[in-house]
Design a protein around this nucleic acid. Structure first.
Lengths: 200, 200, 200, 200
DNA sequence: AATGAATGAGCATTCATTCAT
DNA sequence: TATGAATGAATGCTCATTCAT
């Protein structure tokens, strides 16, 4: 960037967010700084502090955007789409023998897609999500993520179960990421299926 | 501490680790530095770099020890102990109607204890996860914790279910911590109970 | 303030000055910036740089105005007003035994009022002194304040004594502010009274 | 300074203080920063933050040292020394007609010396002194200055008067510095003399 | 006339690590 | 063996000021 030049750069703000997400993806949240974001976005340092008063502001913006991307990935997932296309109850009125099992299978497939797609991507999402542990500013965004996901599942079961499914998927995903274990879709399907049966 | 005095302090190394755990518990991993640990342990800065050549050395030592402490807390938990003391099948030969429900209740209580006891403590544990996400060096520690927990549960169910229980507990705990929601023991009990019924 | 709206705000300049005075009162001269003034006045940053090309322009304007306010406070002070309303020489023609004592009392009360009224306000006045020490541009303002005060006192004594009274009041006020000592009105009265007696 | 070399430099701490005093003398307190002090002392930036955790610490150290220098100047002043050498009360028991006048003269001379000696020096002292207005950390040092000065005068009068004398000298000095007026020793002598006569 | 955006300089502070003692 | 001192890098952040709109 030529020094002294002032660039006309509308969506610079957006580009800084994108850069921040890239930095977090590559170096982790600990690697995100005004400076690293500025360098990645090829903007002067002052530009990042101008658009994001504090680093937390930038982090929140990044998490929010990552969230949206994730939500879209969920909504657009082939796995869930298949469910909807599922053959309607057959003529004789009997619903498919075990509709829960189908949802379990679909979610297991979805989880597999998410985990398998792009390791960096999923790590980024978990990291931003987990960062809320220590940064209260991120909690609302994390909570919103949970709720959005649960809300997407609720129509196919009940709200309580939906929340539990999210917890299970979070837990399984975490174990896969942290223990360097391959994702076992059958196992996930089984576990999710249990979740879908009332215990009483 | 009087300057210039050299203290006879045989377990200084251990005390530095303890201090580091306290610091991580209070300020997070990002808050751990040679300096913060030295201050917390009331030892000179040089002492921390002497005993732990790099900061990562200290971090790993601290997390390992925290892990052990956590494992002990689990093993020694009143909730699990009660289970063991559980009345044997009664005279008429009928086992308790639903032994799984009892385990679910015990685990729900255990989780409540862990979450309720000391916010800093439990945040510390979860932060171990977060850190392992980005630092492969910590993955073995994280994996070990998962396995230890699962192993503790396995005798009361089967290995696969045990692992699932851990995932569920992780997921629920995470949601509580990240969304500032109060822990709902009844909900957890219900969810865990479902986990304990075979889906077939 | 809705973005994009342009407010019809005729005395914005004045409002920025007022805000600047408030900022200096609360945070000191060092705390005055285009930004802090803009925030306090609830105007956009650009507005402050538009009305005051440099920060010094704003500072001088603010201090000048503060000075005027202070002068008015002195002139309108109940303490001095009482003096004027002072009962005329009593019937027997003897003036009050010691008119100087009365002036001393009035000034002591005035000083008490000034010091007690608003810490921020009085700190602001003294900070003008501090600043003038290093910024010759402010000296005239400081000098003007001294002279205005002395001029207000001169009619009740003589010019030389008036100047001395100002010095004494400055010195006492300074000690109160700098040493966190409570203002002792009786002490001030005594000291001022001595000032009012010719030494010869 | 050759990079990479580590200098053995005992009294570096002291040299930083000296440099800070020089910086304040030249550029005012506002011009003092870790960086400016480091540059003036020709030490790396980190060195100033090592020896003085915060900038206030450095400022306090500087003020303290300036104070000491000032106290020495007072104690060693020829003006006060003359007083001590003053002929003892003469044989017939009559003390000198007006001992107060002598003290007043001596103090006026002292003030003249202090003000006249080195403008930068005296500005520095006033600035550090006045800075206590906004920086509570400096208040104790400023208070100590007052007390030390008053204590030095007390033996020659009474404590209350001593304190008043300090106030008067402060006030006069301030006026001289701020209004660009020449110091008028006769005027000061007169004012101080009035201070030395009980008003009753 | 008014202002949002931009930018380079600067600041206090923290830090991991090294080294002389 | 300990440890105080040292140091260069980095960080978050604030700022005065300029400029395009």
């Amino acid at each position: 960037m030529a020094p002294g030049t002032r660039r006309y750069d509308p969506d610079r703000r957006q580009r800084i967010i994108d850069a921040a997400i890239r930095v977090v993806g590559e170096r982790g949240i600990a690697g995100l700084s005004h400076r690293s974001a500025a360098a990645e976005a090829d903007v002067p340092l002052g530009s990042t502090t101008y658009h994001f008063k504090t680093l937390d502001d930038l982090l929140v913006a990044a998490l929010q955007q990552a969230n949206e991307g994730f939500a879209q990935a969920v909504e657009g997932s082939a796995a869930l789409a298949d469910l909807d296309r599922e053959p309607a109850p057959d003529g004789d009125g009997t619903p498919s023998a075990d509709p829960g099992a189908d949802l379990a299978g679909a979610l297991a497939r979805l989880l597999g897609e998410l985990l398998g797609a792009d390791r960096g991507r999923v790590e980024l999402e978990y990291e931003l999500y987990l960062a809320a542990l220590r940064r209260p500013a991120l909690r609302p965004v994390a909570a919103q993520w949970c709720e959005a996901f649960a809300a997407a599942l609720a129509p196919r079961t009940d709200p309580v179960t939906a929340r539990a499914l999210v917890a299970v998927m979070d837990g399984i995903g975490l174990q896969v990421l942290l223990t360097d274990t391959a994702y076992d879709e059958a196992y996930a399907r089984e576990v999710l299926a249990r979740m879908l049966r009332p215990s009483s």
